[in-house]
Design a protein around this nucleic acid. Structure first.
Length: 175
DNA sequence: CGAATTTGACCTGCGC
DNA sequence: GCGCAGGTCAAATTCG
């Protein structure tokens, strides 16, 4: 396998678009630096492209383990899942945003010759997911879709908000 | 040796 | 109901 090094500043050429795919009316997107980027009004102008109305209900019925498991509340009705799609022009797929991700799947998409990778935040209790996809149109564009919000501090102390802001400025100047 | 990745199987929603 | 497409699981494998 190939352990690609995460994208550094000079590898990210430009940031084209951010798509705000919000499923719910929940306005609380605290702590997300995506919101920060969107609020900067720079090249990261957020655009709502679609509202994912599909509930994506998945509660793992587990027919064998249906016993004393009183987990009807497993699906906690709170479908406050906001998805943000980055469209980044980069040579690498793995954009290092300061969090630690564990890959849990990879599927090939129909209209895309490149596979889509599925990642999950490795922090316990943090169910933030992201998927990375490369456009078959031009392989220099990577679409990173975040889903959920992190409820914990960044793992890397070297990549704090200030560094992210520095990246923002780099994005802005190179765009 | 522990953690992360790979990869095929499995599940679910949707359109026909 | 069937097949397809997208999403997830988990055992095996690989890496640091």
């Amino acid at each position: 396998m190939f352990h690609q090094s995460p994208a550094s500043h000079d590898q990210i050429l430009s940031l084209n678009n951010i798509y705000d795919i919000c499923d719910d009316k929940s306005k609380q997107r605290n702590g997300s630096f995506l919101e920060l980027m969107a609020s900067m009004g720079g090249p990261a102008a957020a655009a709502i492209v679609s509202r994912d109305s599909s509930k994506q209900r998945r509660d793992h019925d587990h027919p064998s383990s249906s016993g004393n498991e009183v987990d009807e509340f497993k699906e906690k009705k709170k479908s406050k899942k906001c998805r943000y799609a980055f469209q980044t022009r980069s040579q690498v797929d793995i954009l290092d945003d300061g969090y630690r991700w564990r890959k849990y799947g990879q599927k090939s998409v129909k209209n895309n010759k490149f596979p889509r990778s599925y990642y999950r935040c490795t922090n316990q209790g943090c169910n933030v997911k992201k998927q990375v996809q490369r456009l078959s149109k031009d392989d220099g564009v990577v679409v990173t879709t975040y889903e959920g919000m992190h409820s914990h501090p960044l793992e890397k102390s070297t990549d704090n908000f200030e560094n992210i802001l520095t990246q923002m400025q780099i994005y802005h100047t190179t765009n």
